[in-house]
Design a protein around this nucleic acid. Structure first.
Lengths: 227, 227
DNA sequence: GTCTATACACAGATAGAC
DNA sequence: GTCTATCTGTGTATAGAC
C-alpha cells in the first residue's frame, strides 16, 4: 500500500473527533444544536493544536485560544468548563479514533510477515496524516490528570503489544528469527515515533513517508525474518 | 565497556554544569563568592529539574522553585534576572558538557565497527547517567528562545552526523553494507532516544542499560555490517 | 448562543530591611 | 547575601447585556 491510497480510503478523522466529542459530552456542553457544536469544536481543537504546538498547552492562554479560534472567551466556556477539560476531551477522543483505525486496518492481514509490513505502514501513514495531533499528544501527555495520563500510556503500550504479538506469531509459525519480541517491538515503535516527532527534519531532507516505511522495513527485516 | 566502568570514569557532571554556568555568567550573577554560587546554582538546577519533570517548566512557578531549592524569591533573582534565563543557562551548559564527553570517548576508537559500538554505548551510558536532564531538555527545548532552540536542534543533528560519518567510513573502508547512511543514523538515534524518553518503561521491565546497548547493537548489526 | 466587561487569584519581578 | 513584603501585569473564569 502507498500513502496516497491510504489517504483516500481514510475518513475525515478531524470531524470524527469533533462529533464523538459532542456525543460523549452532550451533558456538559451548554450549546444544543449538533451541527453548530461540531463546527465550533472543530475551531476550538484546531486552534488548540496550532497554539499548543507552537508554545505548549500550558503556555496557551484562553485569550490566545479566543483570538485564534474566532470565538469569544464567553463562548469558549459554554463548550468547556475549564481549559484543562479541552485537553482531556481532545486527547481522549483522538486516542479512541486512532485505536479504531489501527485495529481496523491491521486485523485484515493473515500472514505475520504481511501483518508486520501493514502494521508499520498503517502506523506511519496515520501519524503522517495526523502528525500535528500525534506530536501534540506526545508532548502534552504529562499535563493530563493521572487517570487520563494512565490511559495515554496504556494506549502506547497497546500499540507496542500489537507489534509484539505479530513477532511472537511469526516466530511460532515459522519464518521469523528468534529474538526478544518485547525489546524488538519497543525499538520498532521508537523508529515509528521518530517520524512524527521529527517530521520537519525528514521534510527538509525530502524523505517521503513511503520511502521511510520501506526503509524501516528494510532495517528490521534482516534482524526479524529469515531470508 | 560496561556501564559500571563508564560510571566510575566519568566526572561529576552536575557540578561541572554549575561551575561552567558560574564562569560564563559572572557578569550577570550578583553574588561573587565562587564556592557559594556553585553550591546555590546546584540547588537551583536540581529543583528546576525536579519540578520541571513533574509538571513542565512553564507550569513551575518561582514560588515552587523557591520552596524546593530552599532559597528565597529574592535570592533566586540575585542569581538569575528572569525565570527564562534559568532554563537558557541550564540547558545551554548541559549541552556543552554533553558534547565534550561524547567527543572525548568516541574519538578514541579507530575501527568503524568499534567506533559504532562505542558511540552507541557511550550515548546510552551518558543518557542513563543524566536521564532526567536529557528528558527535561528534550521536552523543554521548544520553550527556548529561537536562537537557543536552534542550537539545541543543531546539537541533536551533530550527534546524528557523528553516526552518519561512522557509517560512511565503514562503507568506504569495507566491512559495512551499502545503505542510506543518513536514514540509518536517524533511526539509530531514535532507538537511543527511546532509552531516556521511556526510562520508566524499561525500568519496569527490568531492562538494564548494558542489555539495551547489546540489543541495539544486535539489531543494527545485520543491517549495517557484513557478517 | 454569543458577546463584552469584569472579578479575583496568582504569576514574575523588585525594593529595601537586615 | 538573603530575606520578607509588595507592586503590577496577566491568567482563568463568570456575569449579565444583547
Amino acid at each position: 500500500m502507498k500513502y496516497s491510497e491510504f489517504d483516500e480510503i481514510i475518513p475525515d478523522l478531524k470531524m470524527d473527533i469533533c462529533r464523538k466529542a459532542y456525543l460523549e459530552n452532550r451533558d456538559k456542553i451548554r450549546i444544543k444544536k449538533e451541527e453548530l457544536v461540531v463546527k465550533n469544536l472543530g475551531k476550538i481543537f484546531d486552534a488548540t493544536l496550532e497554539i499548543g504546538i507552537l508554545k505548549g498547552f500550558q503556555a496557551m492562554t484562553m485569550r490566545d485560544l479566543s483570538r485564534v479560534s474566532g470565538l469569544s472567551m464567553g463562548a469558549l466556556y459554554s463548550y468547556f468548563s475549564s481549559k484543562e477539560q479541552i485537553l482531556t476531551v481532545y486527547l481522549g477522543q483522538g486516542r479512541k479514533i486512532i485505536r479504531e483505525v489501527l485495529e481496523r486496518f491491521i486485523m485484515e492481514e493473515a500472514l505475520p510477515a504481511e501483518r508486520l509490513r501493514t502494521a508499520v505502514q498503517v502506523h506511519l501513514f496515520l501519524t503522517e496524516k495526523m502528525q500535528e495531533f500525534f506530536f501534540f499528544s506526545y508532548m502534552e501527555a504529562k499535563n493530563l490528570s493521572s487517570k487520563e495520563r494512565e490511559r495515554s500510556v496504556q494506549g502506547e503500550l497497546n500499540t507496542e503489544k500489537m507489534f509484539e504479538e505479530i513477532l511472537v506469531d511469526g516466530q511460532e509459525s515459522g519464518g521469523f528469527k528468534k529474538q526478544n519480541p518485547t525489546l524488538t517491538a519497543s525499538v520498532i515503535k521508537a523508529m515509528l515515533q521518530d517520524w512524527y516527532l521529527k517530521r520537519k527534519k525528514y521534510a527538509k531532507r525530502n524523505v517521503h513517508v513511503d520511502e521511510y516505511a520501506d526503509f524501516v522495513m528494510a532495517f528490521i527485516t534482516p534482524f526479524c525474518i529469515h531470508e
